[in-house]
């Protein structure tokens, strides 16, 4: 038993990778600049020094190559954890992910397993140039054969990474980059919740806010602000976008009778659209208002000086809360 420690999300992922490298000799960390530099966000800091260049691998600058070879390594019995440096740079690997990684288990009649984790720092809010702030999770959740998750807290970052690495299916692990430096308690001897289980992170009675990754914090802030106006909002951290834990969400919505889904990604054909459809099917007679969505526009991610206008924030969330409550 070790006492819980306070650490950032960045450090929690680093610790999680470290523990996984220690406990399973088949675990590999690979990607651009993950070795000596420790990654551009320092998530893999110190790992190459301690585990060597054979296990913490600086790859050539080629994302299709990174994921394609990760597939080969997995076929050979390894458990690669591949880093894509930024969200916008996953697309050279999209072919390998969609046509190969996602489908190989099925094509081999279940005889081969593809325990590949693809780490992707995602989302905006860091004032970056283009391709460094996107939220492409729906493009992966849409593909059968992939699991897609995103932690919102250091504890989840630690445990969900451990679980993703232990999972025998490919997991796309979206890391909320603008929250990397947020701190929280991590208990490395706790019994973690299942990887794909949603969690009620704040209880309330008037409306449910559902979010994941970077937007969980925004929703918690919105719930606090709403409380001052006498409104009781429940916040559900979905944690997993594929599969989605609709049971937990349904229970919440049957209680609050209203749902607003929040994500940074564009709302058009996004995760929120799927949630709205399913929850409407499941809870039609409980709902007092249509399920509303707060998210990005059908527009390219804007230049940094407009991102505060583009990204869902407390005001945007509360605006939708008002609209849902007004029905």
């Amino acid at each position: 038993m070790t006492a819980p420690k306070s650490m950032t999300i960045a450090k929690a992922i680093n610790e999680s990778l470290r523990t996984s490298l220690e406990t399973d000799p088949k675990v590999l960390v690979m990607g651009e600049d993950v070795g000596k530099l420790g990654g551009v966000f320092r998530i893999t800091d110190g790992l190459q020094k301690d585990f060597g260049e054979d296990r913490v691998i600086d790859t050539p600058l080629a994302e299709s190559g990174i994921i394609g070879t990760a597939i080969g390594l997995a076929l050979r019995g390894y458990r690669p954890v591949a880093e894509i440096q930024f969200d916008g740079f996953v697309f050279p690997a999209y072919d390998q992910i969609v046509t190969q990684l996602a489908k190989m288990h099925a094509r081999a009649l279940g005889k081969v397993k593809l325990p590949v984790v693809i780490r992707i720092p995602y989302g905006g809010g860091i004032g970056a140039v283009e391709h460094h702030s996107e939220s492409p999770e729906a493009l992966f959740a849409h593909v059968a054969g992939l699991k897609v998750v995103s932690p919102a807290t250091p504890s989840d970052a630690y445990w969900m990474m451990r679980q993703a690495i232990e999972c025998d299916d490919p997991v796309i692990f979206f890391e909320p980059k603008r929250r990397y430096w947020d701190k929280g308690e991590v208990d490395t001897s706790a019994v973690p919740a299942p990887l794909h289980r949603a969690r009620v992170v704040r209880e309330g009675t008037d409306l449910t806010l559902a979010a994941y990754g970077p937007m969980v914090k925004t929703c918690l802030e919105a719930a606090s602000a709403a409380e001052e106006e006498g409104r009781s909002l429940e916040v559900v951290d979905l944690r997993s976008m594929s599969p989605i834990d609709f049971d937990t969400l349904q229970a919440s919505v049957e209680k609050t009778r209203r749902l607003v889904v929040v994500h940074e990604a564009p709302v058009f054909l996004g995760t929120g659209a799927e949630i709205a459809a399913r929850i409407t099917e499941r809870c039609f007679f409980h709902l007092e208002a249509p399920v509303l969505r707060v998210g990005g526009f059908h527009a390219p991610y804007p230049p940094a000086r407009l991102e505060e206008d583009y990204l869902p924030n407390l005001d945007r969330v509360l605006d939708s809360v008002d609209r849902a409550l007004a029905f």
Binding site: F268, H298, A299, P302, P303, R305, L306, D309
Partner: peptide
């Protein structure tokens, strides 16, 4: 700083109802 409405500019050459 650009006008926030510029977010919706020049996305399509021929326009788009959703935009």
């Amino acid at each position: 700083n650009p006008d926030p409405m510029a977010i919706f500019d020049n996305i399509y050459a021929d326009g788009h109802a959703l935009v």
